[in-house]
């Protein structure tokens, strides 16, 4: 499986990473090298092997579904690049 420029461009769009055209060509080569190296996994017979979900086998804990934290908008917004009142501000998304 080999990626072409259009596919890499589409993946970059899905990942919301702007990639300039002059970088795209290099990236296609690098990603293809990595993917073809990864494909050696196809040699491994994994028939009937369950995908690993946990290395320790410890069950995940459950807790009551209640509010355990919060109520401090100033702390939450402290690092905001842009804010209006108690909200993050972003470019307009709805006309």
């Amino acid at each position: 499986m080999s990626l072409d420029k259009a596919t890499v461009s589409n993946i970059a769009h899905l990942a919301r990473i702007k990639v300039d055209d002059d970088q795209l060509e290099t990236m296609v080569g690098e990603l293809n090298n990595i993917l073809s190296w990864i494909e050696q996994l196809n040699e491994v017979d994994t028939e009937g092997v369950a995908p690993l979900a946990s290395v320790t086998g410890h069950p995940l804990p459950l807790r009551a579904d209640g509010i355990a934290d919060g109520g401090y908008p100033e702390r939450v917004l402290l690092n905001a690049p842009d804010r209006v009142a108690d909200f993050y501000s972003v470019p307009k998304v709805v006309e």
């Binding site: 990626l3 890499v8 993946i11 970059a12 769009h13 899905l14 990942a15 919301r16 990473i17 702007k18 990639v19 300039d20 990236m27 690098e30 990603l31 990595i34 993917l35 972003v90 470019p91 307009k92 998304v93």
Partner: peptide, 26 residues
């Protein structure tokens, strides 16, 4: 908003991070 995301991530991430995020997304 999309343009802001893409530009921020395009400038904010270095080459190796971009490679791995793209491999991961793929």
């Amino acid at each position: 908003l999309d343009d802001m995301y893409a530009k921020t991530r395009g400038e904010g991430f270095g080459a190796e991070v971009k490679r791995r995020v793209l491999i991961g997304a793929y």
